[in-house]
Amino acid sequence: MVQVHLTRHLFAFFPQLEGRALEVEASDVAGVVRALEALAPGIGFYVCDERGRLRPHVNVFIGNSMVRDRRQLSDALAPGDTVSILQALSGG
């Protein structure tokens, strides 16, 4: 299982996820997005575009490292990892 941490901004659209300890079974980042979609239908299209790529202003971290593959979301996960899905800041 991996722990998932979501920016609180997403709770405005998916309040059913707020306050929950999110633990999902996933071997890569794409698997996390699929698991979240099952919990909160529609959230996948908030995080990714219709080609499955991370939206330009969304960042995903595994631990403290930003994922490398923003197109296929193939970065591998190990049990116990923490995945953070956050809004990207562009300065200002």
Binding site: F45, Y46, V47, V58, A88
Partner: peptide, 8 residues
Amino acid sequence: GHGHWGAK
């Protein structure tokens, strides 16, 4: 048009 989350 969400700044971060796309068009809805």
